[in-house]
């Protein structure tokens, strides 16, 4: 198996790696770049725990090949806070107790940020369908939805 050399940008920083042709981006992030914030809950795109963005587009990193991201811009949970300043979604998740075990939290935050980028004032239903690709087994989603609603309110300055 010939390794593929890839140059890319992760959270604003240039990154280079060599990966197998069939190696998912998730494995590259976790095992080659040391970014373990994206989690493998299923490896088949059904749980959303590995959510990242590629050129701003929300994806499951388990359904993207590392080889594909040549020249792309990748953003992961590790790049969500601005230095010591948390993103409002991060802050609201803690304040609203929107996490219990926390394994799904990075994926939810990345997906919620993508949702609010497209729709700054979503209804509860839009939030629920917007986050349907992210499984949480602990919370029943109640507090997650409330945290996203509150963060959206704050981000809109309402």
């Amino acid at each position: 198996m010939a390794g593929v050399h890839v140059s890319t940008t992760v959270n604003g920083d240039p990154a280079e790696f060599v990966c197998d042709p069939d190696e998912p981006l998730l494995d590259v992030l976790r095992n080659r770049l040391g970014l373990t914030g994206a989690k493998e809950g299923c490896g088949t795109g059904d749980c959303g725990a590995c959510s990242v963005t590629v050129d701003g587009e929300l994806v499951c990193s388990c359904l993207v090949l590392g080889a594909e991201v040549e020249g792309r811009k990748i953003e992961t949970i590790e790049g969500m806070a601005d230095g010591d300043k948390l993103h409002p979604l991060q802050r609201k998740f803690i304040e609203h107790a929107a996490l219990q075990c926390g394994i799904c939290t990075p994926g939810f935050l990345i997906a919620a940020r993508a949702l609010l980028k497209k729709n700054a004032n979503p209804t509860e239903e839009e939030i629920r369908f917007g986050l349907a690709g992210n499984l949480c087994r602990c919370t029943g989603y109640d507090k997650i939805v409330r945290a996203v609603q509150d963060a959206a309110r704050e981000m809109r300055g309402a």
Partner: peptide, 21 residues
């Protein structure tokens, strides 16, 4: 009362370490 959980920051920034991390 309802204070912030001590492991919250690690869990929203992706640096909490789980089994495979």
């Amino acid at each position: 009362t309802r204070p912030l959980r001590p492991d919250g920051l690690d869990k929203v920034t992706g640096r909490a370490r789980y089994g495979a991390d």
